[in-house]
Amino acid sequence: MSVLAAAADSGLVMSTAEQWLFWTVGPIVVLSASALLFAKRAVVTACSVMLTMVGLAVLYVGLGAPFLGVVQVVVYTGAIMMLFVFVLMLVGVDISDSFVETIRGQRWLGTLFGLGLLAVLGGALARATFTQVIGVEAVSDGNNPGAIANLLFSDYAFTLEVTGCLLIIAAMGAVVLTHRVRLTKKLTQADMAAVKVREGMRLTPPPAPGNYARHNAADVPALDAAGKIIEDSVPDVLRMRGQVHTLRGVAQDLLPAEVAPVDAAPVDVVVDVVVDVVVEAAAAEPPPPADASAEAAPAEVAPVDVAPVEEGDTP
């Protein structure tokens, strides 16, 4: 890397190696960043941005900042973007952004303003005159992290401390923001058993799929002793997706005439991966609204009856 930087010490013109680097990585960075604008699914966007971050890290290294390049990869790609993806998973990985604009003219306005910003920035760039590039090799003296550390713990010591405070506060803030005050007693195993008995629910774990069947795949429902289908035996995710195999498809000979096809099972129930189903049932909360209805209903109305139950922070 220092080789690349040294090649560029000639001043205003990039060295050939740097040109190669720049014109290879630059378009990749821009293209992957454009996914922010055009990718429909958030996960795709997150992955593209990760690529952007890595590309930028490469450029940082090319600019004579290997330490920052590493930090970029570690912090952005490794931590921040992972956090984004984690949150994406938390809120539903397949939530896709509708491109139907709700604010009239906002997209055109955004485009217009983007072009305007590009124009003024380009104008500024065109106007500006730059001095000869000096390069950071001299001050880095072959040990860029060491040089940064020297500066960081001398001139920028106070800033460093303040930033440390900021990080602690941010961590506490995240804890506070995501913390949920328990409104009810924590349920023990005995309590849950009592609830199940009272509600007439199954005490034992659901039967595994494929029991007494020709196939033991997870998408094939189990049969009970009477030969009837046990719906619960198929994982909820598969049922929700409608990927349950019917008996009709796998074992025609075992199918009793009166057994209804499993396809008729309700598919509109979203299984909440965040909230523990049993706890919710014990707290007698209303079932979470279906995603489709939440999308269709006016924004303010649908979630309101859920909010007070979940958001109460003091008992």
Binding site: G26, L36, L37, A42, T102, G110, T111, F113, G114
Partner: peptide, 28 residues
């Protein structure tokens, strides 16, 4: 040298800004 990097930075900045204006998913 500098101009090219600044142009790239500008392009990225504009993409980010337009993203804020256009996209509705708060994560994006």
């Amino acid at each position: 040298t500098v101009t090219a990097y600044l142009a790239l930075a500008s392009a990225l900045f504009v993409i980010g800004a337009v993203t804020v204006l256009v996209r509705r998913n708060s994560i994006i």
